[in-house]
């Protein structure tokens, strides 16, 4: 029971910093929902055929999304309902509807065979907000506590699950340096194909020269992911967030894959910003902060 109490912070008194931080986090989620909606909307119009049906696409033929700008209409609807959710119009249902439409958008965009995980954390955060507004509609503080606890739980689980998948898929030899060589070769093709050329960076050259550097890099990533469940605990959260951010930068420097949204989200939720706001910012004295706080309470 103590684990859940600490996860959902039910014994803590609400603070101004917490309310402000929560609304900033919610704004971040909504901005990325809009970004994906309008990035994928036009892209879906270029698709001609479902190659790999994911999610709901296994039961419904989503090829209707590929023509007549239907995906752009869907992007518009996602935007409207996401903004409704943010400004608490139809609060109980708006994020749930956004989530359903966003799922349809995702399975249409990734119907060509790629399984992208770039938007999964934004999707999980949207789900948390949707459930919070549905089940705790009348209590902003409980809603905030539930949202963050839910996200900490499923983010931690997700990273640990990624490490376990590697141990099951390959075994303890997963971090061998030659595996990173093969991935760098794979990425050299991808980067050439995307941009027309590929030149390895200094870190990639070192890894290709010294196999043990590749092994060290992969071992660090595997260990950081495995301990993802430390996200569940208040005291260890900043440390594991830092390790995971370092891991994501490692993936970027060795394999040219930038999980930028993961890094932003870890930065926003991995550190005790609410406590720091309460401690170091006087929300009553600074007119801009005071206004922002009032606004965040109005749409809490």
């Amino acid at each position: 029971m103590n684990f859940w109490k600490s996860l959902f912070e039910t014994d803590k008194n609400p603070t101004k910093g917490e309310a402000l931080h929560f609304k900033i986090f919610e704004l971040f989620v909504v901005i990325f929902v809009l970004k994906y909606a309008w990035q994928w909307g036009p892209y879906i119009q270029q698709i001609g055929e479902v190659v790999l049906p994911l999610g709901i696409a296994q039961y419904v033929d989503v090829s209707f999304m590929f023509e007549h700008n239907i995906s752009l209409i869907n992007a518009g609807l996602i935007s409207i309902f996401a903004l409704f959710g943010f400004f608490r119009v139809l609060p109980k249902y708006s994020y749930l509807i956004t989530l359903g439409l966003f799922h349809l958008h995702y399975v249409s965009r990734f119907s060509l065979g790629e399984i992208s995980h770039g938007s999964n954390f934004i999707g999980t955060s949207l789900l948390a907000l949707a459930l919070a507004l549905f089940f705790f509609n009348d209590d902003p503080v409980r809603r905030q506590r539930f949202t963050m606890g839910f996200i900490f739980f499923f983010f931690g689980l997700g990273y640990t699950s990624a490490a376990v998948s590697k141990l099951i898929g390959t075994g303890l030899t997963w971090p061998s340096g030659e595996h990173l060589w093969l991935w760098i070769a794979e990425r050299s093709v991808d980067v050439s194909s995307s941009t027309g050329s590929f030149t390895p960076n200094a870190i990639q050259e070192w890894v290709l020269e010294y196999k043990f550097l590749g092994t060290l890099s992969l071992a660090f990533g595997l260990i950081a992911e495995f301990f993802g469940f430390l996200f569940w605990f208040d005291k260890t959260r900043p440390y594991i967030a830092t390790a995971l951010i370092a891991m994501h930068f490692g993936v970027y420097f060795t394999m040219n894959i930038m999980f930028d949204v993961y890094i932003y989200e870890l930065l926003i939720i991995g550190y005790p910003w609410a406590r720091l706001i309460d401690q170091y910012l006087d929300l009553d004295k600074n007119p801009i902060l005071a206004k922002t706080y009032d606004w965040s309470v109005k749409f809490a």
Binding site: L54, G55, Q58, H103, Y106, V107, I115, H117, S119, N120, F121, I122, G123, T124, L126, L127, G158, Y159, S161, A162, S165, K166, I168, G169, T170, T173, W174, S176, E178, H179, L182, W183, E186, V189, D190, S192, S193, L218
Partner: peptide, 25 residues
């Protein structure tokens, strides 16, 4: 659903180290 039902996933990316791959250019 083979480990994927967005936004749920078992996050299997890069789990098959050393396996042959296929890309396009």
């Amino acid at each position: 659903h083979l480990g994927e039902f967005w936004p749920f996933s078992i996050y299997p990316m890069f789990s098959q180290a050393g396996n042959p791959w296929k890309r396009a250019i």
